[in-house]
Design a protein around this nucleic acid. Structure first.
Lengths: 125, 125
DNA sequence: AAAATTGTTATATTGAAAATAGAACAGAAT
DNA sequence: ATTCTGTTCTATTTTCAATATAACAATTTT
């Protein structure tokens, strides 16, 4: 799985990494039960610092997407063992929905946008 | 319209302000053509610095939601005079959709989430 | 059993961003 | 004419992002 980091971006490196790992799982490049690379190996691979990868892993753990086993590694959780995050998801989605509405999109157009994104992600290639 | 700033939050004050203004417009508390308060008055009202409000206004202008008329004020744009932002919206939505998928939500559940948010916002009270 | 690898923790430094503060300017509104 | 507007400038403080080492203890590998 290919990760592309843009050091110049205004979005922090650890967030870029978090998002791309999530997208990689969503696309099926990685599966529940799989281990993520060690923070050191991954950092060396990406050319970033170990702590930057570590921060990303802990962000993923906070979201419930992986579990970090001390002195061992990071493992991708299966959806069934993830606690209910609908509350947090709602709060994360709200600003975007509001923005789309203000920009003039109606309900159907927003649903189309969501649908096309889901198909883009799930229709792997 | 009531704005609530949480200084302790990890999301910057100017972003909190931007999001709440957007939500306020989406909810119909403010309308296209309306003027936003002056940066000074708003800042005094919120108990924050003038430049923080100014930064929020420029963020809103970048999104196309308001226009800033030099030496005059900030005015809410109508949707029709907003250029096409679908490209940026797609990029903003993607990480959230991917996260929702990884957390185990299927297409229908995500659509439901979006629908409930839209109804919450548009069904004013 | 010994060596290597793991995540963790701690400290330190650098650079950028966030937020505040005060001041001054020129155009607009009253 | 006075006030108010957004703009611009400089400056400071604080926080965050990122890097850099180093050391520790437990797990894995050899």
């Amino acid at each position: 799985m290919i990760i592309q980091i843009e050091p110049q971006s205004d979005v922090p490196i650890y967030t870029q990494l978090t998002n791309q790992i999530i997208e990689g799982i969503a696309r099926g490049y990685m599966h529940p039960g799989d281990s993520l690379p060690s923070v050191r190996a991954f950092a060396a691979d990406l050319g970033v610092n170990m702590h930057t990868v570590n921060k990303s892993y802990h962000e993923l753990e906070k979201k419930g997407i992986i579990r970090i086993i001390p002195k061992s590694g990071a493992v991708i959780n299966s959806p069934v063992e993830i606690s209910n995050n609908s509350e947090r998801l709602l709060e994360e989605f709200k600003p975007m929905i509001a923005e789309a509405l203000v920009l003039g999109l109606d309900k159907e157009q927003i649903q189309e946008l969501v649908t096309s994104l889901i198909q883009d992600i799930k229709g792997k290639p």
